[in-house]
Nucleic acid binder design. Structure first.
Lengths: 145, 145
DNA sequence: TCTGCCCTGCAACCCGGTTGCATTTTGCAT
DNA sequence: ATGCAAAATGCAACCGGGTTGCAGGGCAGA
């Protein structure tokens, strides 16, 4: 797969979510697609050391609002992760576990954890779940000394 | 029960957790004991409008570190809640669900929700869980128009 | 080509969290 | 009761992430 095809595909991703595919947005999307873990605004800022912080901020806000990414709070900072396909404008399906590894300091989604077993007391109706855990991830556990 | 007895009891609470029972700390503890929901530093600041923000901040940090209260992140701000008896210095047992009601904007602990059913994939070891949900609480559900 | 809208970038602000340091209070031993 | 050391308090200031206002520039559609 070459860069041109990637571009083409990414343009489609944005158009599908009703987002104008500008240069900045494509670069940001490309970067997000490469990530295995949640990234903060500061992370992206550092990666694109020439880019403007505010533009990035607004790009992320747009992405989040349109259902391209979702955000989580990790140790006082907001981090972002790609959504899965089913998310759209104003509709997020992010009811999965986020795991923060205290060793590699990465936050990843653990979709395989079943959260449907959660039952609230009667009278409560849930709009949004937020699950997270911190500890040692499987990768780091294997390399512990 | 009169104020004197309350004072006496609160002094004991602090001493049990190895905290010097100063006036400020007793007032803060008293306030926390009255609360049904999580409070932020700003909340306490407003309640004790004469008190110094930094002292309150450090009081809360001390309480948290000694196992009197635990903190949660709610919409970018840190909020505090009393721990249960079993918490001590450096040891917290806060693996319960926190529920944020979008109507009354209160955050409460739901100890009755069973979280032991959570199972992570092999290789992951968890040090801390953080569960929260937002929606409408039982109290507000009854008063919906 | 003209026009208007959206994106971008700069500046500046806001606010919660945090630290340094000087002062006051407290606990404890004399 | 008095003095000393340690802890708590209060003030000032900083920091950094998040956020908004506004002006300039580019792109799309008329």
């Amino acid at each position: 797969m070459n860069a041109g095809q990637n571009d083409e595909r990414n343009v489609q991703i944005l158009l599908n979510k009703e987002i104008q595919p500008t240069a900045m947005r494509l670069l940001t999307l490309e970067y997000l697609l490469e990530q295995q873990a949640a990234v903060s605004l500061a992370d992206i800022e550092m990666h694109f050391h020439k880019a403007d912080r505010i533009t990035l901020y607004r790009t992320l806000k747009t992405f989040e609002q349109k259902g391209v990414i979702h955000s989580i709070q990790e140790q006082q900072v907001t981090k972002y992760l790609l959504c899965d396909e089913s998310c759209a404008t104003g509709i997020h399906h992010d009811d999965h576990l986020h795991f923060f590894c205290t060793k590699c300091r990465n936050t990843t989604c653990l979709h395989q954890v079943d959260l449907s077993v959660m039952a609230l007391p009667p009278g409560f109706s849930v709009v949004q779940w937020r699950f997270s855990a911190s500890g040692i991830c499987d990768r780091c556990a294997g390399t512990m000394q």
